[in-house]
Measured scan of single mutants.
Amino acid sequence: DNLVIALHSYEPSHDGDLGFEKGEQLRILEQSGEWWKAQSLTTGQEGFIPFNFVAKA
């Protein structure tokens, strides 16, 4: 599955970004460039995340 774990917390800075906490698990929905579309397994919310803040779970 496309699961990743957050290496750092991220505060959203643009509409459509997904904020998350360090250690949170996310499911990657789309990989494109440096911003990936993801869904939080904690909150169920979707949005874009910086790819370098996460690692394969």
Rank of each mutant, 00 (worst) to 15 (best):
G23P: 02
V54Y: 03
S32V: 14
F51H: 13
T43F: 01
H8V: 14
K37L: 15
A38L: 08
T43L: 02
L29H: 03
L26E: 04
I49T: 00
T42A: 12
I5D: 01
K56Q: 13
W35G: 07
L7K: 05
Q39G: 03
S13R: 15
T43W: 01
D17H: 15
I5T: 08
W36L: 10
E34F: 15
S40R: 09
S13C: 14
E30T: 09
R27Q: 08
N2V: 12
E11Q: 14
E46Q: 13
G23R: 01
N2W: 13
A6S: 04
H14L: 08
A55S: 11
D17V: 08
P50H: 08
I28M: 03
S32I: 14
L41W: 03
G33E: 04
E21G: 08
G23H: 05
L41I: 10
L7W: 06
R27N: 06
A38Y: 03
Q31P: 05
K37D: 00
Q25F: 15
G23E: 02
V4M: 12
Q25C: 15
V4W: 15
R27C: 08
Q39T: 07
D15N: 10
Q39H: 07
T42V: 13
W36Q: 00
S9P: 07
P12C: 06
P12D: 04
I49V: 09
A38W: 03
A57K: 10
F48R: 10
S9C: 08
G19Y: 06
K37R: 14
H14V: 10
G33Y: 04
K56G: 11
F48V: 08
G33T: 04
D15L: 12
I49L: 03
F20K: 00
E24M: 02
R27P: 01
N52W: 15
W35Q: 08
K37P: 03
A57N: 11
I5H: 05
T43H: 02
N52A: 10
G47D: 01
F48Y: 14
L18G: 01
G33L: 02
L26D: 01
E30W: 11
N52K: 09
F53Y: 14
A57T: 12
E21T: 13
A57Y: 15
E34A: 12
A55W: 09
L26C: 08
Q39S: 07
N2H: 11
K56A: 14
G23T: 03
P12I: 06
D15P: 15
F53I: 07
